[in-house]
């Protein structure tokens, strides 16, 4: 059933796939992000309680959702790497880590900038912000562990183990932090608790969510290509590729 996937374990095939996918992912990302953002900023109706500050939702919620999904995707890639002994799976995992960390940072920053007008403070130990912060720590751990090894093959495996440990922990952390929050703060009005969101508010959110997902895909492909070049730099096909990509410009310059 999964046989069609196996050729992509070869770095060369994976590289070609990245090149094919990349333009489409960029087109999708730019299209969705511009439509979603303009719609969300200019055309979506105001929130009756929060006024125009709620428009931060259009970047906060997608980045928060996708920062978690990216971590899960990393763990899946790590699992694939372990089960099938794919080097490209580990490379994909580590290619995604900085993007996930960046999204987590975005979710934290926009959460703080939204919290300031709503709660009157940049940082409140709100359950979701706290779990997002811990998620950032998990990302930092994986990236730091990967960076600590000289041998990147070994580094990928080690970081994969840590990603899996983290992914088992994410739900536990999530629920424990939520529970801790209800213990310590009582019933505060959560800015995210919108039981029913109006469709004209929801559409731009979904489009932006899709746009962020495309963006993650696009940056992952380029970072995966970087990883492949870095580790296969002595292979003839990489050298041929580098010459093809760069030398035409150089000859023109001369």
């Amino acid at each position: 059933m999964w046989k069609w996937l196996h050729p992509y374990a070869k770095t060369e095939r994976a590289y070609q796939l990245c090149i094919t996918l990349q333009p489409w992912l960029w087109v999708g990302a730019i299209l969705c992000l511009s439509i979603g953002t303009v719609w969300g900023l200019a055309f979506a109706p105001q929130d009756y309680q929060q006024g125009d500050s709620f428009r931060i939702i259009y970047i906060h919620v997608p980045s928060a959702i996708l920062s978690m999904s990216t971590y899960v995707a990393m763990a899946i890639a790590a699992l694939v790497g372990m089960v099938w002994q794919w080097r490209t799976a580990y490379m994909t995992m580590i290619a995604m880590a900085p993007i996930g960390a960046a999204l987590t940072f975005i979710a934290l920053f926009t959460g703080a900038a939204w919290g300031k007008p709503m709660w009157g403070a940049w940082w409140v130990w709100d359950a979701r912000l706290t779990s997002e912060l811990i998620l950032l720590f998990l990302y930092i751990g994986v990236i730091a562990l990967y960076g600590a090894f000289e041998d990147k093959q070994q580094a990928g495996k080690a970081a994969g183990v840590m990603a899996l440990v983290g992914v088992v922990n994410i739900p536990i952390i999530h629920y424990s932090v939520e529970w801790w929050n209800t213990l310590h703060q009582g019933a505060t009005i959560s800015k995210f608790d919108n039981p029913s969101i109006a469709p004209e508010m929801l559409w731009p959110l979904l489009i932006n969510l899709l746009g962020f997902a495309f963006f993650i895909g696009a940056v992952t492909t380029i970072r995966l290509r970087n990883e492949i070049v870095l580790r296969e730099q002595h292979r003839p096909w990489v050298q041929a590729l580098a010459e093809q990509a760069l030398l035409p410009h150089k000859t023109r310059e001369r």
Binding site: L138, I173, V177
Partner: peptide, 14 residues
């Protein structure tokens, strides 16, 4: 410490 502290947070909470 970087790897373990975030993982120990639920235990600390409970």
């Amino acid at each position: 410490a970087l790897l373990l502290i975030p993982v120990f947070i639920p235990l600390l909470i409970f």
